[in-house]
Amino acid sequence: MAKALTKSALAAALAEKAGITKKQANIVLVELAQLAYKNAKNTFTLPGIGKLVLVNRKARQGRNPATGEVIQIPAKKVVKFRVAKACKDAVLGKK
């Protein structure tokens, strides 16, 4: 399997494609991440890739795997990423 694309490799590819410097591309990536963090509560969408959504998880019962003891897991908010259909089709191929 191929290696994962690093931040610097992503910035270099973006810079080459957009005709900007690597430093400018790196700034774009950092600002995009900051924008996603600020707007995740209201749903942040990356067109064609997916969206960040805030989800409330219900309280539930779990089990301690070491002792088998039943424990109560409290309700909490979590951030999830929902992949767009276009991204799924591009990566996995159409059925």
Results as ranks from 00 to 15, higher is better:
Ala13Phe: 02
Leu54Asn: 10
Phe81Cys: 01
Thr67Ser: 14
Tyr37Leu: 15
Ala18Gln: 13
Ala11Thr: 05
Ala66Thr: 12
Arg60His: 14
Ala2Asn: 14
Leu52Met: 09
Ala40Ser: 11
Val55Ala: 12
Pro74Ile: 04
Ala86Lys: 13
Leu32Asn: 01
Thr43Ile: 10
Glu31Val: 08
Leu52Asp: 03
Lys7His: 08
Ile27Tyr: 09
Val78Ser: 02
Lys77Asp: 06
Val55Tyr: 08
Val28Trp: 11
Val79Asn: 04
Pro65Met: 06
Lys85Cys: 00
Leu46Arg: 10
Val78Ile: 15
Ala13Met: 10
Ala75Val: 03
Asn64Leu: 03
Ala25Pro: 09
Ile20Phe: 00
Ile73Met: 04
Lys38Arg: 14
Arg60Gln: 12
Ile73Trp: 06
Val83Thr: 14
Leu29Ser: 02
Ala11Trp: 03
Lys3Met: 08
Gly50Gln: 00
Pro47Gln: 10
Lys22Cys: 02
Lys38Gln: 14
Ala86Arg: 11
Lys7Ser: 03
Leu10Val: 09
Thr67Asp: 04
Leu46Tyr: 01
Ile71Cys: 08
Lys88Ala: 04
Ala13Leu: 10
Thr67Ile: 07
Leu5Trp: 01
Ala40Gly: 00
Ser8Ile: 11
Lys58Arg: 13
Gly93His: 08
Lys38Glu: 14
Lys85His: 00
Ser8Val: 13
Ala66Lys: 13
Ala18Ile: 01
Met1Phe: 09
Lys41Cys: 05
Asn56Leu: 09
Ile49Asn: 00
Glu31Gln: 13
Leu52Arg: 00
Tyr37Gln: 15
Tyr37Met: 14
Ala84Ser: 15
Ala2Gln: 12
Asn42Lys: 14
Asn64Val: 04
Asn64Phe: 03
Leu32Tyr: 01
Gly19Phe: 04
Ile71Asn: 07
Gln34Pro: 02
Ser8Gly: 03
Met1Lys: 12
Ile71Trp: 02
Leu52Gly: 10
Lys17Ala: 12
Val70Gln: 14
Ala18Asp: 04
Leu14Gly: 00
Ala33His: 12
Phe81Ala: 08
Ala36Glu: 10
Pro47Trp: 03
Leu29Val: 06
Thr21Tyr: 05
Leu52Lys: 03
Thr6Ile: 08
Leu32Trp: 06
Phe44Pro: 10
Leu54Gly: 06
Ala36Pro: 10
Ile73Pro: 08
Thr45Ser: 14
Gly62Ser: 07
Asn39Leu: 12
Val55Trp: 08
Ala11Lys: 06
Gly50His: 02
Thr21Arg: 05
Gly48Thr: 07
Ala90Ile: 05
Ala36Met: 15
Arg60Gly: 11
Lys22Phe: 00
Ala12Asn: 07
Phe44Val: 07
Ala25Asp: 07
Gly50Cys: 03
Ala33Val: 13
Gln61Leu: 12
Ala15Asp: 05
Ala13Glu: 15
Pro74Asp: 08
Lys80Gly: 09
Ala36Trp: 07
Gly48Tyr: 05
Leu92Phe: 13
Leu32Ile: 10
Thr6Glu: 04
Thr43Gly: 11
Pro74Gln: 09
Ala25Gln: 08
Val28Arg: 04
Lys85Met: 03
Ile71Thr: 10
Ala4Lys: 12
Pro74His: 03
Val79Arg: 09
Asn39Ser: 13
Gly19Lys: 05
Ile49Asp: 04
Gly93Ala: 06
Thr21Gln: 03
Val30Asp: 15
Ala86Gln: 15
Ala33Arg: 14
Lys85Leu: 01
Lys80Gln: 13
Ala12Ile: 00
Ser8Cys: 00
Ala18Val: 06
Lys58Ala: 14
Ala84Arg: 05
Ala59Asp: 06
Val79Asp: 04
